[in-house]
């Protein structure tokens, strides 16, 4: 995972927030355009809109949610 510029915030039980990225590149090297000031990257792995968070983590039992 690489980020061009910006800040990041790990949200307990939820996504990773990234601010000010031009693009986001995932662990497999796929590059995604970023068109909003802050994006939420999925950390639970169950999103239907990967790499972005779609709040699926809210429906998971506590032990399946990321730390």
């Amino acid at each position: 995972m690489t980020v061009a510029t910006g800040d990041s915030l790990v949200c307990p039980g939820g996504p990773l927030l990234l601010r000010g990225c031009g693009t986001y590149t995932d662990e497999d090297g796929f590059e995604y355009p970023v068109d909003r000031p802050v994006v939420a990257v999925c950390r639970c792995g169950f999103s239907n809109r990967l790499p972005w968070c779609d709040s699926t983590h809210k429906r998971l039992p506590p032990d399946k949610r990321p730390d």
Partner: peptide, 15 residues
């Protein structure tokens, strides 16, 4: 709103 509010909710609560 599925994607935007998955960002906005964290911003609203945490930031």
């Amino acid at each position: 709103h599925v994607v935007a509010d998955s960002v906005h909710d964290q911003i609203a609560v945490r930031l």
